[in-house]
């Protein structure tokens, strides 16, 4: 489907700041395609971000947009959604933004099941500050702050969200751009808190230090390690080593917060009117 670029992008704000070969453009495109295919009202859609490379995406997107403080995008978005539940609120976050400084907001948003769509541009690294390890950097990988290899275990962000009570979690990569678009569509359409872990390559700061110099090498790295969720179930723990599942990891019905709050207001006002 051809995209009417001017409708969705602030073309005057181009060129973007991302490095050549960065995966963030692919994820951003997937978001725009999803919005287009869902025919969302661009006047009723807000995009919110934190700090980092991913956080610059909203500046290029032609909606109401909010570029907040580091880690806090979900908390700002919570205020927007509570205030105006009729808006589609999409949060763009990075792996450091969502899992380190903003981890608390991520798990609580999942728990309270507010109708937000959170898309994590997960490139396993702090790119904006030139390549420090994040809570998503694989063990053994190199970063400027893990010069001897990453010593810590990384998060599985989808499992974190599911563990916190999240009822929609999905994962895909920039290699699987079409699937990624479809998952984002499904996430936006989902009534409740929806989390998409979008693996995105950072050849400049992650690849270069980890023998994945070119964008192509990095995308092949995604391809080789990803396993569709249907096959993932059949793998033994040993077979899962170094790999990850892609697709919808969980999707369930749950009561959404703004709906419950709306009912509460109606009840209280009815009672007051009696």
């Amino acid at each position: 489907m051809a995209l009417p670029i001017d409708k969705y992008l602030r073309v005057a704000k181009m060129p973007h700041i991302w490095c050549p070969g960065c995966g963030h453009g692919i994820v951003t495109q997937a978001i725009v395609r999803a919005i287009h295919e869902l025919e969302l009202d661009t006047e009723k859609t807000v995009v919110v971000s934190g700090i980092g490379c991913s956080a610059r995406a909203p500046g290029y997107l032609h909606f109401d947009t909010l570029h907040t403080t580091h880690g806090r995008a979900i908390a700002f978005a919570t205020g927007i959604k509570m205030a105006k539940p009729e808006l589609n609120v999409i949060v763009i976050t990075g792996d450091g933004d969502a899992a380190a400084i903003g981890g608390n907001h991520l798990i609580h948003a999942a728990r309270r099941n507010l109708d937000l769509t959170v898309i994590c541009f997960n490139n396993n690294i702090y790119g904006m500050t030139s390549g420090q390890y994040s809570p998503l950097t694989p063990q053994g990988s190199y970063a400027t702050t893990s010069p001897y290899g990453m010593l810590e275990k990384p998060f599985d962000l989808c499992n974190l969200v599911i563990g916190a009570g999240g009822t929609f979690a999905a994962r895909s990569t920039t290699y699987h751009a079409r699937q990624l678009t479809n998952l984002i569509k499904e996430a936006i359409a989902y009534k409740g808190f929806a989390f998409v872990d979008a693996l995105s390559q950072c050849p400049t700061y992650f690849g270069r230090r980890n023998k994945l110099r070119t964008p192509l090498e990095m995308m092949n790295w995604f391809k080789d390690r990803s396993v569709p969720v249907s096959s993932w179930e059949k793998l033994s723990p040993e077979e899962r080593e170094g790999k990850f599942a892609i697709g919808v990891l969980t999707k369930a019905q749950a009561t959404e917060l703004t709906e419950v709050y709306k009912q509460l207001i109606e009840q209280l006002q009815q009672r007051g009117g009696e």
Binding site: V46, V48, D64, L66, T68, T69, R72, A75, F76, A77, T78, G79, I80, K81, M82, A83, K84, L87
Partner: peptide, 9 residues
């Protein structure tokens, strides 16, 4: 953060 978001809305 949330009150900033709600105010902008």
């Amino acid at each position: 953060a949330a009150i900033c978001g709600a105010s902008l809305a």
